[in-house]
C-alpha cells in the first residue's frame, strides 16, 4: 500500500492528450500533449490570439477541445466535470464576482459553492486585509478599482484549502508591485507545500522531514503526502521572479 502511494504520487495532476482547438476555421493548436505534476509551475506564453486563454478554458472544462481529452487528478474532465474540477482554482479574465455584492459576500458564496462553508468570516477578513483591502470589505464590489477587484478574486487562492491545481489567466494584470510579489510568494509556497499550508504547519513538517529523512524513507514520503504540493499553470506577459520548477510552454500564433 505504502509503495503504491509513492508511485501514485508521482503521477501528474493534470494530463492533456492530443488537444487541438479550432476557432472560426483557424487552427489555434494541434496535438498538444503535456502533463503537470505536483510542484510544477507551467508558464504559458504566446502572442495575443495564440490561444492561451482557449487552452486554459479547455483544461478546466469550460470549453471542449476539437480532439483529445484532459484528465485532472485522474478524472476525465469531459465525463465527470464536477469531480474533476473540485480541486481547481480557476481565475480567468472574468473574475467570477458579482458587482452588487460585497467582497465578503462574494467570497462567502464562493466558499459555499466549493463545499467548504465551515470557513468563518474572520478568515475571509484576514485574507482581505492581507491583500490590503481593509475597510472595503462591505462595499459593493463595483465601487472598487480594477486592481482591488482582482485582489478580491485572488483571495480565493488563500481561502480554497482543498485545491491542488491553480489555473490562472494573467493573474498579475492590474496589480501593484507589492501585491504582485505577495502573490508570487504565495505561488511559490503553494508549489512547495500545497494549499493546506499554514506557516506553522509547514515549518513542522519541514523539521520532521529532515529528522526522519536518513532513517526512514517511507515515512518521509508519508509526511510528504500529508502536504501534497500543488501545481500552477498560468499565462503572464510580465516576467515573474518565481523560479521554482518553471516550465515554459510556448504557443505560436498560427493560421
Amino acid at each position: 500500500m505504502g509503495f503504491k502511494d509513492i508511485r501514485e504520487s508521482q503521477l501528474p495532476i493534470l494530463a492533456a492528450q492530443q488537444l487541438s482547438c479550432e476557432k472560426q476555421d483557424r487552427i489555434l493548436f494541434q496535438d498538444i500533449d503535456f502533463s503537470i505534476s505536483s510542484g510544477e509551475l507551467v508558464l504559458l506564453t504566446g502572442e495575443n490570439g495564440a490561444g492561451k486563454t482557449s487552452l486554459l478554458r479547455i483544461l478546466v472544462g469550460l470549453s471542449s477541445p476539437n480532439t483529445g481529452h484532459v484528465s485532472i487528478n485522474g478524472h476525465v474532465i469531459k465525463k465527470d466535470i464536477n469531480i474533476a474540477t473540485a480541486n481547481i482554482v480557476y481565475i480567468g479574465h472574468k473574475l467570477g464576482l458579482s458587482g452588487l455584492l460585497s467582497p465578503v459576500e462574494n467570497l462567502q458564496f464562493y466558499m459555499d459553492l466549493i463545499g467548504a462553508p465551515c470557513c468563518d468570516t474572520n478568515e475571509i477578513f484576514d485574507v482581505l486585509s492581507l491583500l490590503g483591502l481593509d475597510g472595503l470589505e462591505d462595499l459593493p464590489l463595483k465601487h472598487l478599482s480594477a486592481g482591488q477587484q482582482r485582489r478580491v478574486a485572488l483571495a480565493k487562492l488563500w481561502l480554497n484549502k482543498s485545491a491542488n491545481l491553480w489555473v490562472l489567466d494573467e493573474p498579475f494584470t492590474a496589480l501593484d508591485v507589492a501585491t504582485v510579489s505577495l502573490l508570487e510568494r504565495h505561488i511559490e509556497n503553494f508549489l512547495k507545500q500545497g494549499a493546506t499550508n499554514k506557516l506553522e504547519v509547514s515549518a513542522e513538517t519541514d523539521s520532521a522531514k529532515t529528522n526522519s529523512a536518513k532513517t526512514n524513507k517511507a515515512k518521509t514520503k508519508l509526511l510528504d503526502d500529508s502536504s501534497v504540493s500543488g501545481a500552477v499553470i498560468m499565462t503572464s506577459h510580465q516576467a515573474t521572479s518565481i523560479d521554482h520548477h518553471k516550465t515554459l510552454f510556448d504557443l505560436e500564433f498560427a493560421w
Binding site: 480567468g92 467570477g96 458579482s98 458587482g99 459553492l113 463545499g115
Partner: peptide, 11 residues
C-alpha cells in the same frame, strides 16, 4: 461577470 464559470466548475 464569470460567476457562471465558477458554478459550472463547482462540485
Amino acid at each position: 461577470n464569470g460567476s457562471l464559470e465558477q458554478m459550472i466548475m463547482s462540485p
